[in-house]
Nucleic acid binder design. Structure first.
Lengths: 231, 231
DNA sequence: GTCTATACATAGATAGAC
DNA sequence: GTCTATCTATGTATAGAC
């Protein structure tokens, strides 16, 4: 690995650990093990170095979330992505940048971060749409809103973990989000059957218990079978 | 307002806008309109100033979330708190601190942040417990997990808003979280009635519509009924 | 209590030798 | 391509006058 790559790697690490504003060229050179001459030969300065390092970090972060693109059932992809191992206490390489004043003031750096979040949002929303289409989630939730909520719970999970110095609150947040997702999935699965079952009860009550016809083949029966099959 | 108060107010604002590491004593003095002599007379240094300013910020942030302690129905308090107006693009005065390297390295500052998050967590969890006890949320969700999820979705909402420079993604995240909460509430509301309805149906089915023998009361039927009750 | 003057380290970048 | 030397501005704090 040449000096240039080592400098990019070092910058990427320091951007993660200390952010942009608090990282000095001196820190980078020390971690990369190169002198000032090399750094200013390969890069125009701190900004240039940060742009290239951030591109690398974002590329890696997107790859780590490739699970959303897998071939599994959409609902399962959502759950699996929530429970992806994430280094809460170290924080998010990308989300971290949003709190750095010098990043916010730098259109190029901020643009990279914004684009990354938009791209992840599209992935989440697409998978949620598939889940709704497959009847795995209720049709009355907005996929874009839900996508933002999942992005937020992950980013916020990092914040909780860093605040406490402990992974536990982030894991708890993911479990809480997954629990709500499960309730929604159950609701979607029971929606059609539940309505049917209720109306069949209404029918029975309306027609009387000894009315007679078709009992075994009631929707209630099928609903039980469908629900088992759905999961 | 004396120099001391002005200095604390100015520090509080700058901690919010630029964080701790990127805020210099010079910035603070300029914003407060006082000289160096005043600052080092009232405070031992930057750290001391930050501690007192952060205490103030936290106090205000807790007050802003006092809604969770209101007398309204617990579920409504949860929803209302999600939809509290929040300055997404400006970020969270408290959560912001978790991304500052100099805060993470300062036990006193980090301790204040950690304590604030714990306190908010207790508020959320307590309200969620009340909602479950009131039958407004399903009994099988963990209040602590759900509390962490709500804290995270808010903190993450700030991150999304700062990344995009737009309040919209944060609002979307809150709507998404509220939608999941609503599904859970609907599920809880239908739970008790559902059990009753289902068990009455089971009874009808078990005793037979035509006086017959248990044909309708197959395991498949009961499993469908039980699942409605259990979830 | 508040001011100005001063001190010392670090940030970020340039110059020029090898 | 890489190194050391140098430069200017800023961060953080102290000294001492008023």
């Amino acid at each position: 690995m040449g000096s240039k790559e080592r400098l990019i790697e070092a910058t990427s690490e320091l951007l993660w650990e200390r952010g942009y504003a608090a990282t000095s060229p001196h820190d980078i050179m020390a971690l990369a093990g190169v002198g000032q001459g090399s750094m200013y030969h390969h890069f125009s300065g701190k900004h240039d170095l940060a742009v290239q390092a951030l591109r690398l970090s974002i590329e890696r972060a997107m790859d780590a979330n490739g699970l959303l693109d897998s071939a599994a059932q959409p609902l399962e992809r959502l759950r699996a992505n929530l429970f992806l191992p994430r280094p809460g206490v170290k924080g998010c390489r990308v989300g971290r940048m949003t709190q750095d004043p010098d990043v916010l003031a730098d259109p190029e750096l901020l643009g990279l971060v914004a684009e990354a979040f938009e791209q992840m949002h599209r992935k989440w929303a697409e998978t949620i749409r598939e889940a709704i289409d497959a009847g795995q989630l209720p049709g009355n939730v907005d996929p874009d809103d839900l996508a933002s909520a999942f992005q937020a719970v992950i980013q916020g999970g990092y914040v909780l973990a860093k605040a406490s110095g402990d992974q536990a609150p982030m894991d708890a947040a993911m479990r809480g989000a997954a629990a709500l997702l499960d309730v929604a999935a159950t609701s979607a699965a029971s929606q059609q059957p539940a309505i049917t079952a209720e109306s069949s009860l209404d029918q029975i009550l309306r027609h009387g218990v000894d009315g007679g016809e078709d009992m075994a083949a009631t929707p209630a029966n099928r609903s039980g079978g469908n629900r088992l099959g759905a999961h």
